[in-house]
Write a protein that binds this DNA or RNA. Structure first.
Lengths: 246, 246
DNA sequence: CGGTCCCTTGACAGCCGTCAACTACCGTGG
DNA sequence: CCACGGTAGTTGACGGCTGTCAAGGGACCG
């Protein structure tokens, strides 16, 4: 399978063979593997590397003093935590796995080398980070304005499109390994209400969700039901004028 | 009054006289003024400059097809919209004023010149953008996990600290020009419920809010009531090891 | 076969939205 | 000077979405 980060960045611009070689090399440098529900980095620790997910699912999350937990973002293959995170002295949130995960740790010096010598990759990484910020903003809209059903439908649309970007869908199906409790922690809903919400989407024929696999029979219909506008994902090759010759 | 961006960046690191001169110059280059409730840039438009607020309040926001509006972020003096926004072909949200605003438009070439020649400013701008992202994440936590009262208290703490960073507080008081409807659009609450929530904070003695002015008699108490942990604002001079000699 | 995790369902309560009416305040114009 | 209109804030009644609690079922695993 091709490298998920390369697949993702090619949504933005066409990379040269040299660019791809660099990214492949970076992805193979310090690869690690964790089981489900383990911490990649914890709140309060000093960030020492940019983490890139190669396979499996992870999440950013924060826990309040009284134990309530909010999942702030999901990471799927090809996702990168903030590329300039070194500037901060300590993490303000934790990153943990949801399933077994392989990831690679990109050091500060490697990031600096890329910035100096590979402008097209640098630009693509900026795009990646702007899109992440845009997704975070859309979550704000989601939590603030949408009903539970719309909210859940919106999340499923987003995850499906993000997986499709990196080639992890098969037709209208994709993996969906999160428990209903985890979905609730992301959407600010109780697990009981997540269940009711999923039942509603199922009985409307908008989703089939069973055994960690999601099928979306009619993506347009689900997008309409969730008031999903994909513009915030910037999947339209914003940087194609920078395409490499190769 | 000193430049609010300089004041803010000095929360991160001490700037040299030369750095400050550059920032002053940039802030004075293409200054514009708008009245309340006008658009700085609209969703769908192509970003042509980085906007820096010099005075007044503005917000990012998005409107769903059925008219529900979510405010995604507030801008106060010293705040900057994404410094690499040029990479994207079109805006996925709008930025509008809440009060009369003076702002300056920093062009792509000026940003590139800073990146090339002023590494300490560049680093400070990265800090600024990471902190913005962190604030956005905290809003996700806010909307997902906190009750209306905690949520409102949390917002008021955040805004007070952000204003204090740039010298816009007087003791325990600051300006608070937003209507209750606007506060509701930010916190995902109806204006009626915002009112009830503010009444509750008032009767608990946690805030005094009257005539566009907010007083927080006991910031620690309000922070405790809202489960506010300021670590996400990274106000502790993360970059002080980079301090300029000047 | 027992234990654990996850999903599911029902009953009930409470937070928060909607609707509606009223007040306060302010600037404008007669 | 007062009338007027518009905006913002306030309050009460009511209903619904969503949380909590509790119990049971199914799948998987040691």
């Amino acid at each position: 399978m091709t490298n998920p980060l390369i697949r993702k960045l090619e949504q933005f611009t066409k990379l040269s063979e040299d660019d791809k070689r660099v990214l492949e090399q970076v992805s193979a440098q310090d690869v690690r593997r964790l089981g489900a529900r383990e911490d990649i980095i914890r709140e309060g620790e000093q960030p020492k590397a940019v983490n890139l997910v190669l396979s499996g699912w992870a999440c950013r999350h924060k826990t309040l003093e009284d134990g309530r937990r909010q999942i702030i973002a999901f990471f799927v293959p090809g996702d990168l935590c903030d590329s300039h995170v070194f500037v901060l002295r300590q993490m303000d949130h934790s990153i943990s796995t949801l399933t077994p995960v392989t990831f690679t740790r990109i050091s500060r010096t490697v990031m600096e080398e890329i910035t100096l010598n590979h402008p097209r990759i640098t630009q693509a990484l900026w795009w990646e980070s702007l899109v992440s910020a845009s997704i975070q903003r859309e979550w704000t809209v989601n939590l603030g304005q949408r009903s539970a059903t719309e909210r859940m439908g919106h999340l499923l649309c987003e995850l499906f499109l993000r997986l499709r970007e990196v080639g992890l869908t098969a037709g209208n199906r994709c993996e969906m390994p999160m428990t209903q409790t985890v979905l609730g922690e992301a959407m600010g809903l109780s697990n009981v209400h997540v269940n009711r919400t999923l039942q509603e989407l199922r009985s409307a024929g908008l989703i089939v969700l069973k055994g960690r696999e999601l099928t979306i029979p009619d993506l347009q219909a689900l997008m309409a039901a969730a008031q999903f506008n994909p513009n915030y994902m910037h999947l339209d090759h914003d940087g194609r004028h920078l395409d490499a010759n190769g």
